[in-house]
Design a protein around this nucleic acid. Structure first.
Lengths: 190, 190
DNA sequence: ATCCTTCCATACGCCAGCGTATAGTCCCTT
DNA sequence: AAGGGACTATACGCTGGCGTATGGAAGGAT
Protein backbone atom coordinates (compact mmCIF):
# COMPACT_ATOMS: atom_id res chain seq x y z
CA UNK A 1 0.00 0.00 0.00
CA UNK A 2 2.03 2.85 -1.33
CA UNK A 3 1.19 6.52 -1.07
CA UNK A 4 -2.35 7.52 -0.33
CA UNK A 5 -4.73 10.16 -1.62
CA UNK A 6 -7.71 11.87 -0.03
CA UNK A 7 -10.06 9.29 -1.48
CA UNK A 8 -8.27 6.45 0.27
CA UNK A 9 -8.85 8.26 3.52
CA UNK A 10 -12.50 8.88 2.74
CA UNK A 11 -13.04 5.23 1.93
CA UNK A 12 -11.36 4.11 5.12
CA UNK A 13 -13.37 6.68 7.06
CA UNK A 14 -16.62 5.29 5.70
CA UNK A 15 -15.54 1.79 6.68
CA UNK A 16 -14.76 3.00 10.17
CA UNK A 17 -18.13 4.72 10.28
CA UNK A 18 -19.93 1.51 9.41
CA UNK A 19 -18.09 -0.44 12.04
CA UNK A 20 -17.75 1.93 14.93
CA UNK A 21 -20.01 4.90 14.30
CA UNK A 22 -19.10 8.54 14.06
CA UNK A 23 -16.78 8.34 17.03
CA UNK A 24 -14.66 5.85 15.12
CA UNK A 25 -14.09 8.35 12.35
CA UNK A 26 -11.07 9.64 14.20
CA UNK A 27 -7.79 10.63 12.69
CA UNK A 28 -5.38 8.46 14.56
CA UNK A 29 -7.40 5.22 14.52
CA UNK A 30 -8.08 5.52 10.81
CA UNK A 31 -4.41 6.23 10.26
CA UNK A 32 -3.60 2.96 12.00
CA UNK A 33 -6.17 1.21 9.83
CA UNK A 34 -4.35 2.54 6.79
CA UNK A 35 -0.98 1.62 8.18
CA UNK A 36 0.18 5.18 8.18
CA UNK A 37 0.64 8.04 10.61
CA UNK A 38 -1.56 11.06 11.02
CA UNK A 39 1.14 13.16 9.45
CA UNK A 40 -0.31 11.82 6.22
CA UNK A 41 -3.83 12.80 7.12
CA UNK A 42 -3.15 16.45 7.70
CA UNK A 43 -1.62 16.67 4.29
CA UNK A 44 -4.88 15.64 2.60
CA UNK A 45 -7.36 17.22 5.01
CA UNK A 46 -7.43 20.36 7.12
CA UNK A 47 -9.04 18.67 10.14
CA UNK A 48 -11.16 15.81 11.38
CA UNK A 49 -14.39 17.53 10.43
CA UNK A 50 -13.35 17.37 6.79
CA UNK A 51 -12.82 13.63 7.09
CA UNK A 52 -16.30 13.14 8.46
CA UNK A 53 -17.72 15.20 5.64
CA UNK A 54 -15.79 13.20 3.07
CA UNK A 55 -17.21 9.97 4.48
CA UNK A 56 -20.72 11.37 4.42
CA UNK A 57 -20.22 12.52 0.87
CA UNK A 58 -19.26 9.01 -0.18
CA UNK A 59 -22.26 7.60 1.62
CA UNK A 60 -24.62 10.02 -0.10
CA UNK A 61 -23.02 9.25 -3.44
CA UNK A 62 -23.66 5.54 -2.92
CA UNK A 63 -27.34 6.24 -2.51
CA UNK A 64 -27.39 8.17 -5.76
CA UNK A 65 -25.49 5.40 -7.49
CA UNK A 66 -28.00 2.80 -6.36
CA UNK A 67 -30.89 4.94 -7.54
CA UNK A 68 -29.21 5.58 -10.85
CA UNK A 69 -28.76 1.84 -11.28
CA UNK A 70 -32.42 1.18 -10.51
CA UNK A 71 -33.56 3.73 -13.02
CA UNK A 72 -32.50 1.41 -15.79
CA UNK A 73 -35.38 -0.88 -14.83
CA UNK A 74 -38.64 0.14 -16.40
CA UNK A 75 -41.07 -1.61 -14.07
CA UNK A 76 -41.42 0.15 -10.70
CA UNK A 77 -42.28 -3.14 -9.00
CA UNK A 78 -39.12 -4.65 -10.40
CA UNK A 79 -37.16 -1.64 -9.15
CA UNK A 80 -38.47 -2.09 -5.64
CA UNK A 81 -37.81 -5.81 -5.67
CA UNK A 82 -34.21 -5.31 -6.69
CA UNK A 83 -33.87 -2.52 -4.16
CA UNK A 84 -35.24 -4.60 -1.29
CA UNK A 85 -33.07 -7.57 -2.12
CA UNK A 86 -30.05 -5.37 -2.31
CA UNK A 87 -30.97 -3.50 0.86
CA UNK A 88 -31.56 -6.55 3.01
CA UNK A 89 -28.76 -8.50 1.45
CA UNK A 90 -26.02 -6.10 2.42
CA UNK A 91 -26.39 -4.70 5.91
CA UNK A 92 -23.52 -2.28 5.60
CA UNK A 93 -25.61 0.66 4.49
CA UNK A 94 -28.27 -0.05 7.07
CA UNK A 95 -25.61 -0.04 9.76
CA UNK A 96 -24.29 3.29 8.57
CA UNK A 97 -27.74 4.82 8.24
CA UNK A 98 -28.89 3.74 11.61
CA UNK A 99 -25.76 4.79 13.39
CA UNK A 100 -25.69 8.14 11.70
CA UNK A 101 -29.26 8.91 12.62
CA UNK A 102 -28.76 7.88 16.18
CA UNK A 103 -25.64 9.95 16.50
CA UNK A 104 -26.91 13.12 14.97
CA UNK A 105 -25.73 15.98 17.10
CA UNK A 106 -27.40 16.08 20.44
CA UNK A 107 -29.52 19.05 19.56
CA UNK A 108 -32.31 17.02 18.08
CA UNK A 109 -33.33 18.66 14.86
CA UNK A 110 -31.24 21.75 15.23
CA UNK A 111 -28.42 22.61 12.93
CA UNK A 112 -25.78 20.38 14.42
CA UNK A 113 -22.31 21.69 14.78
CA UNK A 114 -20.93 19.11 12.41
CA UNK A 115 -23.57 19.29 9.73
CA UNK A 116 -24.17 15.57 9.96
CA UNK A 117 -27.85 16.16 10.55
CA UNK A 118 -28.35 17.92 7.26
CA UNK A 119 -26.80 15.13 5.23
CA UNK A 120 -28.64 12.38 7.06
CA UNK A 121 -31.92 14.17 6.70
CA UNK A 122 -31.32 14.82 3.02
CA UNK A 123 -30.42 11.21 2.26
CA UNK A 124 -33.35 9.85 4.27
CA UNK A 125 -35.82 12.09 2.53
CA UNK A 126 -34.33 11.24 -0.83
CA UNK A 127 -34.78 7.53 -0.24
CA UNK A 128 -38.30 7.90 1.05
CA UNK A 129 -39.25 10.10 -1.86
CA UNK A 130 -37.80 7.62 -4.31
CA UNK A 131 -39.74 4.71 -2.83
CA UNK A 132 -42.88 6.81 -2.67
CA UNK A 133 -42.53 7.70 -6.33
CA UNK A 134 -42.10 4.07 -7.33
CA UNK A 135 -45.17 3.03 -5.36
CA UNK A 136 -47.24 5.76 -6.93
CA UNK A 137 -45.99 4.74 -10.33
CA UNK A 138 -47.13 1.24 -9.43
CA UNK A 139 -50.62 2.58 -8.93
CA UNK A 140 -50.86 3.38 -5.23
CA UNK A 141 -52.56 6.50 -3.97
CA UNK A 142 -50.11 9.17 -2.71
CA UNK A 143 -51.22 8.81 0.87
CA UNK A 144 -50.92 5.06 0.86
CA UNK A 145 -47.58 5.22 -0.89
CA UNK A 146 -46.24 7.61 1.72
CA UNK A 147 -47.42 5.43 4.55
CA UNK A 148 -46.00 2.24 3.10
CA UNK A 149 -42.70 3.83 2.16
CA UNK A 150 -42.26 5.13 5.68
CA UNK A 151 -43.17 1.79 7.23
CA UNK A 152 -40.78 -0.07 4.97
CA UNK A 153 -37.84 2.25 5.49
CA UNK A 154 -38.39 2.35 9.24
CA UNK A 155 -38.53 -1.43 9.21
CA UNK A 156 -35.33 -1.51 7.22
CA UNK A 157 -33.55 0.59 9.81
CA UNK A 158 -34.98 -1.25 12.79
CA UNK A 159 -34.30 -4.66 11.32
CA UNK A 160 -30.71 -3.72 10.69
CA UNK A 161 -30.43 -2.66 14.29
CA UNK A 162 -31.91 -5.88 15.59
CA UNK A 163 -29.82 -7.95 13.23
CA UNK A 164 -26.78 -6.21 14.59
CA UNK A 165 -27.37 -7.51 18.08
CA UNK A 166 -28.34 -10.90 16.78
CA UNK A 167 -32.01 -10.70 17.67
CA UNK A 168 -33.39 -10.85 14.15
CA UNK A 169 -32.06 -13.61 11.98
CA UNK A 170 -30.91 -11.92 8.81
CA UNK A 171 -32.15 -14.28 6.17
CA UNK A 172 -31.73 -12.04 3.17
CA UNK A 173 -34.43 -13.19 0.76
CA UNK A 174 -36.92 -13.77 3.51
CA UNK A 175 -36.71 -10.19 4.75
CA UNK A 176 -36.90 -8.79 1.26
CA UNK A 177 -40.16 -10.65 0.72
CA UNK A 178 -41.49 -9.30 3.96
CA UNK A 179 -40.59 -5.78 2.92
CA UNK A 180 -42.28 -6.22 -0.43
CA UNK A 181 -45.43 -7.29 1.36
CA UNK A 182 -45.23 -4.20 3.53
CA UNK A 183 -44.95 -2.13 0.40
CA UNK A 184 -48.11 -3.75 -0.91
CA UNK A 185 -46.27 -5.24 -3.87
CA UNK A 186 -46.03 -8.83 -5.14
CA UNK A 187 -42.84 -10.67 -4.27
CA UNK A 188 -42.42 -12.55 -7.51
CA UNK A 189 -43.16 -11.68 -11.07
CA UNK A 190 -46.91 -11.47 -11.56
CA UNK B 1 -30.99 19.70 45.62
CA UNK B 2 -29.33 18.47 48.76
CA UNK B 3 -27.13 15.42 49.08
CA UNK B 4 -27.42 12.68 46.51
CA UNK B 5 -27.63 8.92 46.56
CA UNK B 6 -26.70 6.29 43.98
CA UNK B 7 -30.20 6.30 42.59
CA UNK B 8 -30.05 9.99 41.77
CA UNK B 9 -26.96 9.29 39.76
CA UNK B 10 -28.58 6.35 37.98
CA UNK B 11 -31.59 8.43 37.06
CA UNK B 12 -29.45 11.24 35.73
CA UNK B 13 -27.34 8.72 33.83
CA UNK B 14 -30.42 7.30 32.11
CA UNK B 15 -31.48 10.82 31.16
CA UNK B 16 -28.06 11.46 29.72
CA UNK B 17 -28.25 8.17 27.86
CA UNK B 18 -31.56 9.13 26.25
CA UNK B 19 -30.22 12.47 25.16
CA UNK B 20 -26.68 11.82 24.15
CA UNK B 21 -26.15 8.10 23.94
CA UNK B 22 -23.71 5.95 25.80
CA UNK B 23 -20.91 8.43 25.33
CA UNK B 24 -22.90 10.95 27.32
CA UNK B 25 -23.00 8.65 30.31
CA UNK B 26 -19.77 10.15 31.50
CA UNK B 27 -18.87 11.00 35.03
CA UNK B 28 -17.97 14.63 34.77
CA UNK B 29 -20.80 15.72 32.45
CA UNK B 30 -23.40 13.96 34.57
CA UNK B 31 -21.89 15.55 37.64
CA UNK B 32 -22.42 18.94 36.04
CA UNK B 33 -26.00 17.97 35.22
CA UNK B 34 -26.50 17.21 38.90
CA UNK B 35 -24.82 20.39 39.97
CA UNK B 36 -22.12 18.54 41.81
CA UNK B 37 -18.52 17.51 41.34
CA UNK B 38 -17.26 14.06 40.52
CA UNK B 39 -15.94 13.74 44.02
CA UNK B 40 -19.52 12.81 44.82
CA UNK B 41 -19.71 10.19 42.12
CA UNK B 42 -16.77 8.13 43.26
CA UNK B 43 -18.29 7.82 46.66
CA UNK B 44 -21.41 6.11 45.28
CA UNK B 45 -19.82 4.13 42.45
CA UNK B 46 -16.48 2.44 41.92
CA UNK B 47 -16.12 3.60 38.30
CA UNK B 48 -17.89 4.75 35.18
CA UNK B 49 -18.75 1.23 34.13
CA UNK B 50 -20.91 0.87 37.22
CA UNK B 51 -22.81 4.00 36.28
CA UNK B 52 -23.55 2.64 32.83
CA UNK B 53 -24.77 -0.59 34.37
CA UNK B 54 -26.99 1.27 36.79
CA UNK B 55 -28.58 3.18 33.93
CA UNK B 56 -29.15 -0.02 32.00
CA UNK B 57 -30.66 -1.63 35.05
CA UNK B 58 -33.16 1.19 35.35
CA UNK B 59 -33.99 0.91 31.69
CA UNK B 60 -34.60 -2.81 31.94
CA UNK B 61 -36.74 -2.30 35.01
CA UNK B 62 -38.91 0.18 33.12
CA UNK B 63 -39.64 -2.48 30.53
CA UNK B 64 -40.70 -4.90 33.23
CA UNK B 65 -42.86 -2.25 34.84
CA UNK B 66 -44.66 -1.56 31.59
CA UNK B 67 -45.28 -5.25 31.03
CA UNK B 68 -46.50 -5.69 34.57
CA UNK B 69 -48.93 -2.83 34.04
CA UNK B 70 -50.23 -4.36 30.82
CA UNK B 71 -50.82 -7.69 32.48
CA UNK B 72 -53.73 -6.18 34.34
CA UNK B 73 -55.62 -6.00 31.05
CA UNK B 74 -57.36 -9.24 30.16
CA UNK B 75 -57.79 -8.74 26.43
CA UNK B 76 -54.54 -9.21 24.47
CA UNK B 77 -55.73 -6.85 21.77
CA UNK B 78 -56.38 -4.23 24.40
CA UNK B 79 -52.91 -4.83 25.81
CA UNK B 80 -51.30 -4.24 22.46
CA UNK B 81 -53.36 -1.15 21.81
CA UNK B 82 -52.32 0.39 25.09
CA UNK B 83 -48.74 -0.65 24.48
CA UNK B 84 -48.60 0.88 21.02
CA UNK B 85 -50.16 4.12 22.15
CA UNK B 86 -47.75 4.34 24.99
CA UNK B 87 -44.79 3.37 22.84
CA UNK B 88 -45.44 5.87 20.09
CA UNK B 89 -46.61 8.55 22.45
CA UNK B 90 -43.42 8.77 24.43
CA UNK B 91 -40.31 8.62 22.30
CA UNK B 92 -37.89 8.52 25.20
CA UNK B 93 -37.67 4.77 25.38
CA UNK B 94 -37.36 4.46 21.64
CA UNK B 95 -34.50 6.91 21.72
CA UNK B 96 -32.73 4.91 24.38
CA UNK B 97 -33.40 1.60 22.69
CA UNK B 98 -32.07 2.40 19.30
CA UNK B 99 -29.13 4.35 20.56
CA UNK B 100 -28.13 1.45 22.76
CA UNK B 101 -28.45 -1.02 19.94
CA UNK B 102 -26.46 1.11 17.58
CA UNK B 103 -23.72 1.63 20.12
CA UNK B 104 -23.31 -1.92 21.24
CA UNK B 105 -19.62 -2.62 21.48
CA UNK B 106 -17.92 -2.72 18.16
CA UNK B 107 -17.55 -6.46 18.22
CA UNK B 108 -20.91 -7.09 16.69
CA UNK B 109 -22.49 -9.92 18.57
CA UNK B 110 -19.53 -10.75 20.73
CA UNK B 111 -19.49 -10.37 24.44
CA UNK B 112 -18.83 -6.68 24.62
CA UNK B 113 -16.38 -5.42 27.15
CA UNK B 114 -19.03 -3.38 28.88
CA UNK B 115 -21.80 -5.94 28.91
CA UNK B 116 -24.15 -3.53 27.21
CA UNK B 117 -24.82 -6.04 24.48
CA UNK B 118 -26.18 -8.63 26.86
CA UNK B 119 -28.69 -6.26 28.43
CA UNK B 120 -29.84 -4.84 25.13
CA UNK B 121 -30.28 -8.29 23.67
CA UNK B 122 -32.16 -9.50 26.72
CA UNK B 123 -34.55 -6.55 26.73
CA UNK B 124 -35.16 -6.74 23.00
CA UNK B 125 -35.95 -10.44 23.14
CA UNK B 126 -38.18 -9.92 26.12
CA UNK B 127 -40.24 -7.32 24.32
CA UNK B 128 -40.50 -9.35 21.15
CA UNK B 129 -41.49 -12.43 23.11
CA UNK B 130 -44.16 -10.49 24.98
CA UNK B 131 -45.68 -9.10 21.80
CA UNK B 132 -45.51 -12.53 20.17
CA UNK B 133 -47.34 -14.07 23.11
CA UNK B 134 -50.08 -11.46 22.98
CA UNK B 135 -50.57 -12.00 19.26
CA UNK B 136 -50.77 -15.74 19.70
CA UNK B 137 -53.23 -15.26 22.50
CA UNK B 138 -55.22 -13.14 20.08
CA UNK B 139 -55.41 -16.09 17.77
CA UNK B 140 -52.51 -15.72 15.38
CA UNK B 141 -50.39 -18.66 14.33
CA UNK B 142 -46.93 -18.71 15.95
CA UNK B 143 -45.14 -18.06 12.72
CA UNK B 144 -47.34 -15.13 11.80
CA UNK B 145 -47.12 -13.72 15.29
CA UNK B 146 -43.34 -13.85 15.20
CA UNK B 147 -43.23 -12.13 11.84
CA UNK B 148 -45.62 -9.38 12.83
CA UNK B 149 -43.99 -8.78 16.18
CA UNK B 150 -40.62 -8.40 14.54
CA UNK B 151 -41.96 -6.06 11.88
CA UNK B 152 -43.72 -3.93 14.46
CA UNK B 153 -40.79 -3.64 16.82
CA UNK B 154 -38.39 -2.92 13.99
CA UNK B 155 -40.78 -0.26 12.78
CA UNK B 156 -40.92 1.17 16.26
CA UNK B 157 -37.16 1.52 16.36
CA UNK B 158 -36.84 2.87 12.86
CA UNK B 159 -39.66 5.32 13.26
CA UNK B 160 -38.11 6.67 16.42
CA UNK B 161 -34.89 7.14 14.53
CA UNK B 162 -36.59 8.96 11.69
CA UNK B 163 -38.66 11.07 14.04
CA UNK B 164 -35.47 12.10 15.75
CA UNK B 165 -34.11 13.73 12.64
CA UNK B 166 -37.49 15.20 11.80
CA UNK B 167 -38.17 13.05 8.77
CA UNK B 168 -41.22 11.24 10.10
CA UNK B 169 -43.89 13.42 11.57
CA UNK B 170 -44.55 11.95 14.97
CA UNK B 171 -48.30 12.09 15.19
CA UNK B 172 -48.82 9.81 18.15
CA UNK B 173 -52.20 8.25 17.58
CA UNK B 174 -51.64 7.97 13.88
CA UNK B 175 -48.52 5.88 14.29
CA UNK B 176 -50.12 3.68 16.91
CA UNK B 177 -52.90 2.85 14.47
CA UNK B 178 -50.36 2.07 11.83
CA UNK B 179 -48.56 -0.27 14.20
CA UNK B 180 -51.78 -2.00 15.14
CA UNK B 181 -52.45 -2.62 11.47
CA UNK B 182 -48.98 -4.09 11.12
CA UNK B 183 -49.75 -6.38 14.01
CA UNK B 184 -52.88 -7.53 12.23
CA UNK B 185 -55.08 -6.21 15.00
CA UNK B 186 -58.05 -3.84 14.92
CA UNK B 187 -57.38 -0.27 15.97
CA UNK B 188 -60.60 0.37 17.85
CA UNK B 189 -62.75 -1.80 19.99
CA UNK B 190 -64.47 -4.36 17.83
C1' DA C 1 22.66 15.17 -10.92
C1' DT C 2 19.86 18.42 -8.83
C1' DC C 3 15.63 20.54 -7.50
C1' DC C 4 10.93 20.76 -6.38
C1' DT C 5 6.63 18.80 -5.51
C1' DT C 6 4.24 15.43 -3.08
C1' DC C 7 3.58 12.66 0.60
C1' DC C 8 4.76 10.89 5.26
C1' DA C 9 6.95 10.44 10.25
C1' DT C 10 8.07 12.27 14.61
C1' DA C 11 7.70 15.26 18.32
C1' DC C 12 5.20 18.51 20.66
C1' DG C 13 1.36 21.18 23.24
C1' DC C 14 -3.49 21.03 24.27
C1' DC C 15 -7.96 19.43 26.09
C1' DA C 16 -11.51 16.26 28.03
C1' DG C 17 -12.56 12.60 30.63
C1' DC C 18 -11.09 8.72 34.05
C1' DG C 19 -9.66 7.45 38.45
C1' DT C 20 -7.10 8.58 43.07
C1' DA C 21 -5.80 11.12 47.11
C1' DT C 22 -6.76 14.22 50.38
C1' DA C 23 -9.17 17.49 52.82
C1' DG C 24 -12.94 19.18 54.01
C1' DT C 25 -18.45 20.05 55.48
C1' DC C 26 -22.86 18.69 57.31
C1' DC C 27 -25.66 16.21 60.35
C1' DC C 28 -26.72 12.76 63.76
C1' DT C 29 -25.65 10.56 67.84
C1' DT C 30 -24.31 10.38 72.55
C1' DA D 1 -19.82 19.76 72.62
C1' DA D 2 -17.55 16.30 70.63
C1' DG D 3 -17.01 12.64 67.73
C1' DG D 4 -18.01 9.88 63.75
C1' DG D 5 -20.26 8.65 59.49
C1' DA D 6 -22.10 10.25 55.10
C1' DC D 7 -21.31 13.00 51.48
C1' DT D 8 -18.68 16.52 48.56
C1' DA D 9 -14.77 19.65 46.66
C1' DT D 10 -10.22 20.20 44.90
C1' DA D 11 -6.00 18.91 43.05
C1' DC D 12 -3.35 15.65 40.72
C1' DG D 13 -1.56 12.16 37.23
C1' DC D 14 -2.80 9.43 33.23
C1' DT D 15 -4.61 8.38 28.57
C1' DG D 16 -6.41 9.19 23.90
C1' DG D 17 -7.42 12.02 20.40
C1' DC D 18 -6.78 16.81 17.98
C1' DG D 19 -3.99 19.93 15.60
C1' DT D 20 0.88 22.10 14.56
C1' DA D 21 5.66 22.25 13.36
C1' DT D 22 9.35 20.52 11.35
C1' DG D 23 12.16 17.49 8.99
C1' DG D 24 12.68 14.18 6.02
C1' DA D 25 12.02 10.39 1.80
C1' DA D 26 10.58 9.31 -3.11
C1' DG D 27 10.02 10.39 -7.71
C1' DG D 28 9.47 13.20 -11.81
C1' DA D 29 11.18 17.46 -14.44
C1' DT D 30 14.98 19.77 -16.30
Amino acid sequence: MGRLNADDWARAALDALAEGGLAAVAVEPVAVRLGVSKGSFYWHFPNRQALVEAALERWEAETEAVIAGLERLRDPVERMRVLMERAFGDGRDAAISFRLISEVDDAVTGAGSSGVGAVVRRVSERRLAYIRAALEEAGQAPEEAARRALAAYAGYLGLAALARIGVAADGAGHLADLAMAELGLPSRSV
